[in-house]
């Protein structure tokens, strides 16, 4: 049995990440991890006719680039697992149309990269394939028009609002022995603590992240000391504070090794209010900074807890509260 406790799995073969790629927009390219991205776009339309086409293009190109970096022939990729934020996950579906790989489209909002990595790792550990690509994308301009307002509308953003990352991250998972590896994963439950403000996702998602982190420690018997870095997806500055405090209340002090991708991507002077968000937020940090620093040996044991808010404009307008999810994957150099 590969299952630990209630929600965690331990991979016998510990699938490795043998190649990644990240593409980001110009604003992200001025941020903290500018030296870790494979491609920084000069403009976010990327010579396309619409923002949606641009997002599809960066997702497709990040996958091609990750496959190239992994040195696995494209014909040996068994599955392509991807998702994004748009209705009917069109970026993923349309990228899959170009890529011609067996495709599983998934949706976990901004937690999608962890969801994809978990499914991919399970496929490999279950011997259903040798090589799997997991990828996600998000785009500030496609997200704004779907979830919020037209770009040129002169409205003021709330201090709690977050900035959707324009970018795509892809990782090639493989049965080959290589570092880093995905050793364990905790599939999160949907947690809804009654928050209903779509301009304050960090507050809504923090309890989901906390639930998954606590569950991960309880299921595996591990402690925060077993990790060099614990990284949540896109809680932003407010959500990160809340998560830290809730964890302390539950007896886990992780403050010396805990940070959040949404807090890190942009510098404070880039004026993104509470931080970054979007599928690409956790993905470009994991596939860029974390992956490259694990190869260099700066980090050897990382727990990524990607977070997602499972709301839509319809549910918000109907007054529904925000159901949230967080999935954890343990990345380790063995």
């Amino acid at each position: 049995m590969k299952k630990l406790g209630r929600q965690t799995v331990q991979f016998e073969k510990a699938p490795s990440i043998i190649g990644t790629a990240t593409i980001v927009g110009p604003k992200e390219g001025q941020g903290r991890f500018k030296d870790y991205y494979d491609l920084i776009l000069k403009d976010s339309i990327y010579q396309e006719r619409s923002w949606e086409k641009a997002e599809t293009k960066i997702l497709k190109e990040s996958v091609e680039m990750a496959i190239k970096n992994s040195k696995v022939p494209t014909a040996k990729i068994d599955y392509f697992i991807a998702g994004d934020l748009l209705n009917q996950i069109i970026s993923a579906g349309f990228a899959a149309r170009e890529l011609g790989l067996p495709f599983l489209g998934i949706y976990g909002a901004c937690s999608t990269i962890a969801q994809g990595a978990i499914i991919g790792a399970m496929i490999i550990d279950g011997d259903f394939g040798e090589n799997v690509v997991a990828a996600v994308s998000s785009h500030f301009c496609t997200a704004e028009r779907q979830f919020r307002f037209p770009l040129e509308l002169g409205n003021q953003r709330k201090p709690t609002s977050q900035w959707t990352v324009t970018g795509a991250g892809a990782m090639v998972l493989s049965a080959k022995a290589h570092n880093p590896r995905i050793t364990r994963a905790t599939v999160g439950k949907v947690i809804d603590m009654g928050e209903a403000d779509p301009n304050d996702m960090g507050t809504a998602m923090a309890p989901a992240a906390v639930d998954t982190i606590v569950r991960h420690f309880e299921d595996t018997g591990k402690t925060p000391d077993d990790y060099d870095l614990i990284l949540t997806g896109d809680l932003g500055s407010i959500g990160k504070d809340i998560a830290e405090e809730l964890l302390r209340q539950k007896g886990y002090d992780i403050s010396n090794k805990y940070t959040d991708c949404g807090v890190l991507i942009f510098y404070p002077e880039q004026d993104v209010h509470a931080g970054a968000s979007g599928c690409a937020c956790a993905a470009v940090v994991t596939c860029g900074y974390v992956y490259k620093e694990m190869i260099r040996g700066k980090y050897n044991r990382v727990l990524l807890v990607a977070t997602g808010a499972l709301l839509s404009t319809t549910s918000s307008q109907q007054g529904e509260t925000i159901p949230c999810i967080a999935h954890a994957i343990a990345l380790e150099n063995l």
Binding site: Q156, K158, P159, T160, D192, M193, G194, E195, A196, D200, T203, A206, P207, I238, D241, I242, E245, G319, E320, T321
Partner: peptide, 27 residues
């Protein structure tokens, strides 16, 4: 509007204290 449980109401109170106030005077 959905009816909130006791736990959800407590969280709402807690999270409210964490939320930054908009800079009203400047705005």
């Amino acid at each position: 509007m959905p009816v909130l449980t006791k736990e959800q109401q407590d969280y709402k109170k807690f999270s409210k204290s964490k939320r930054p106030k908009p800079p009203l005077l400047k705005n």
